[in-house]
Write a protein that binds this DNA or RNA. Structure first.
Lengths: 160, 160
DNA sequence: TCATTTGGTTTTAATTTGCAACCAATATAT
DNA sequence: ATATATTGGTTGCAAATTAAAACCAAATGA
């Protein structure tokens, strides 16, 4: 895995786990319902040794669990934990951006629809508790309880 | 940059641009308001040659623009385009997941607040147009107009 | 004129990747 | 019982990528 980010930062923290794009494809597979090593390998094209290493990380981080389903031979199932499931908004946001900005309207490879109505899923966006859309300017970033001195300094600079 | 994903997939499409974690940190910097090469380099710790390559990709993809602000010496500003700004939900989703699952409650490095009220920003989540929360089961993934045969097959399998 | 700053490029060494071969455990077929 | 196939890996190696450091060019300031 690539170099670790040492800054105290929520984004960098995530990237230390999801250090390469393969890891996101593994997560995609998990959300699509793929559970088996060979299945994930086929669907992503990732090398077996790299997949093995990535699955280890994801299991150690508590994002996937490895269940032994081995009545017949060596068989395991990798499934999302609750922590893993909580990545859903991230994956949705990536998916929607990809549809819109990589492939574009009328060329989306995979549509996201509300099952109840069949209508396109609304774009993920920040809102108030009563549902009003928030813009970037409506959102404030402030050092939290876990902020390092560097983070405090950083945000003060950014605020200028 | 790492190997390109050849599958027709919105997630893989995004990952072909945001091929490594450094790229996301560059985007984070752009959202924090950093515009200068040296500023981004200092704040991320990325090697200059790699930063140079990543900025080229982001400019070519239309996510950043490079403006010449060179009254005095060689000076450029990298700024988000509209396409770049549209990554905001992705970054927010990553940020919120990092706060919650990497650092945890009462240890968040950077809080996200509604500026108007000072209250914590609600977690990004899919909703209907009239604001009701949708679960994963409420959302359907279906081959879109740009789907390859492999994608169609893939989603049919996943649906079983 | 000389040093400094910005925004890089070049060079080199270390790390990571992709690929192919190999392997162990179990099941199935002969 | 023996041979063969499948799953889920591990090992070894060549090739690609990265990180770090040195270097460089253009412009400004002292």
């Amino acid at each position: 895995m690539a170099k670790r980010h040492t800054h105290t930062c929520p984004i960098a923290g995530v990237l230390n786990i999801f250090g390469d794009n393969w890891t996101w494809l593994v997560i995609r597979e998990a959300f699509y319902g793929a559970t088996r090593f060979s299945e994930i390998q086929r669907n992503t094209g990732i090398a077996k040794n790299v997949l093995s290493a990535r699955l280890d990380v994801l299991v150690n981080e508590g994002i996937l669990v490895r269940e032994d389903v081995g009545e017949n031979g060596t068989r395991y199932a990798y499934r999302l934990t609750a922590k893993g499931e909580s990545l859903h908004p991230v994956l949705l946001a990536l998916h929607q951006w990809g549809n819109e900005h990589v492939y574009g309207p009328d060329n989306e490879p995979v549509l996201l629809l509300e099952r109840a109505t069949g209508k396109p899923l609304q774009a993920l966006a920040p809102t108030t508790r009563d549902g009003r859309r928030l813009t970037r300017a409506d959102i404030e970033t402030r050092p939290g309880p876990g902020a390092s001195k560097a983070t405090v300094r950083r945000l003060a600079e950014a605020g200028e």
